[in-house]
Amino acid sequence: MGDIAKGVLGGGWALVVGWILPTALNLAVFLFTVAPSLHRPPFLERLLPTGQAALPLLVAAILLGLVLNALQTPLYRFLEGYALWPTAAYERGCRKQRARRRRTADRLALAASASPIRRALLSEKLSRYPADDTQVAPTRLGNAIRRFEEYGYDRYRLDTQVLWNELTSAAPDWTRRQIDTARTNVDFFVALLYGHLAVAVTAFAALAASDADHMVLIATGVSLSALIPLWYHASVAATDEWAAAVRAMVNLGRKPLAEALGLVLPKDLHDERTMWHLVTRMSRRPYAPAARDAFAPYRAGPTDPPTPTA
């Protein structure tokens, strides 16, 4: 029972809260507002008898939640502006986000006499952009995620996109749990957003039915469409905790990662950045003989054998 509880409170809990729960909410809205206006085949009438929709709803929520969880990478990539975006739209979005970033930075610089709360809000908005202007993405969610994707490389030349599995394996357990918990909040709003979009489109499409309840369908479609920007803003704000968790893992996991790779973390920050640059490059490229001399200053010596006792 203890192992089961750990599994539920670990990755299983993130799956339930992040994907299955919002899917169940969207299915419930669909069932009570859109489904009555749709023509249902006879076999669905047998599977979904009146007053007994709880079990089919639960099963459908679990199955669809698992599907969304499996598709989370393309779902995120579209909202980040990387997938299915025409080149012109991508470049226009990047220009718009760079301009917004500059305006926020200018407003923060001019807010020296403003209240601390005002400066904190502007600083929070600015912190949701990557440090490097060339890393700016075409959407706010893309930038909010990109800021911690490039954090390790910007500070230490440790590319977390390349060394993610190694870093999460070597970092303390509690940092990994923090990341999973923080990401669950973003997953929840992303799943809710996509679900609202699907139900709203279905509601508007159902208006073509002859016996449809037009008032309910219009109210449902308009309400859900109005909530989509709210969930998008919430997903962007929820990345703050995710970014803090990744930052903690990079800062605290560098030394265990270096030791796990058989390296010694240099005392000088410049040397450390050089070392992580070499590790990242070696992970991405085929081995070259020059790597032997390049890694020599950072390689840990062999451990002394234990001294036998009498």
Score class of each variant (00 low, 15 high):
Gly2Tyr: 13
Asp3Val: 12
Leu9His: 04
Gly11Pro: 11
Ala14Lys: 06
Val16His: 13
Val16Phe: 15
Gly18Thr: 07
Trp19Ile: 02
Pro22Asn: 06
Thr23His: 01
Thr23Gln: 05
Ala24Ser: 07
Leu25Glu: 02
Leu27Gly: 05
Leu27His: 02
Leu27Arg: 11
Phe30Gly: 11
Leu31Met: 03
Pro36Asp: 06
Pro36Asn: 08
His39Gln: 12
Leu48Arg: 03
Gln52Pro: 00
Ala54Arg: 01
Leu57Ala: 08
Val59Pro: 02
Val59Ser: 04
Ala60Tyr: 04
Ile62Val: 12
Leu63Asp: 08
Gly65Cys: 05
Val67Tyr: 07
Thr73Leu: 12
Leu75Cys: 09
Phe78Val: 13
Glu80Ile: 05
Pro86Met: 13
Thr87Asn: 13
Ala89Lys: 06
Tyr90Cys: 08
Glu91Tyr: 11
Arg95Trp: 03
Lys96Leu: 09
Arg98Cys: 12
Arg102Gly: 09
Arg103Asp: 09
Thr104Trp: 03
Ala105Tyr: 07
Asp106Ser: 03
Ala109Leu: 14
Ala111Lys: 03
Ser113Leu: 14
Ser123Ala: 15
Tyr129Asp: 01
Asp132Gln: 09
Arg140Thr: 10
Arg146Met: 10
Arg155Tyr: 00
Tyr156Trp: 04
Glu166Cys: 03
Leu167Tyr: 05
Pro172Cys: 04
Thr175Asp: 15
Arg176Ser: 06
Asp180His: 08
Thr181Arg: 12
Arg183Ala: 14
Arg183Gln: 15
Asn185Cys: 02
Asn185Val: 14
Phe189Ile: 02
Phe189Gly: 05
Leu192Cys: 10
Leu193Arg: 05
His196Ser: 14
Val199Tyr: 12
Val201Glu: 04
Ala203Pro: 02
Ala203Ser: 13
Ala205Ser: 10
Ala205Lys: 02
Leu207His: 04
Ser210Val: 06
Ala212Tyr: 12
Asp213Phe: 04
Ile218Glu: 04
Val222Cys: 08
Val222Lys: 09
Ser225Trp: 01
Leu230Thr: 10
Tyr232Gly: 03
Tyr232Ser: 07
His233Lys: 12
His233Asp: 15
Ala238Phe: 08
Asp240Gln: 12
Val246Pro: 00
Val250Asp: 14
Val250Ala: 10
Val250Gly: 09
Val264Phe: 00
Val264Gly: 01
Leu269Met: 15
Arg281Lys: 14
Ser283Cys: 07
Tyr287Phe: 12
Ala291Lys: 00
Ala294Thr: 03
Asp304Val: 14
Pro306Lys: 08
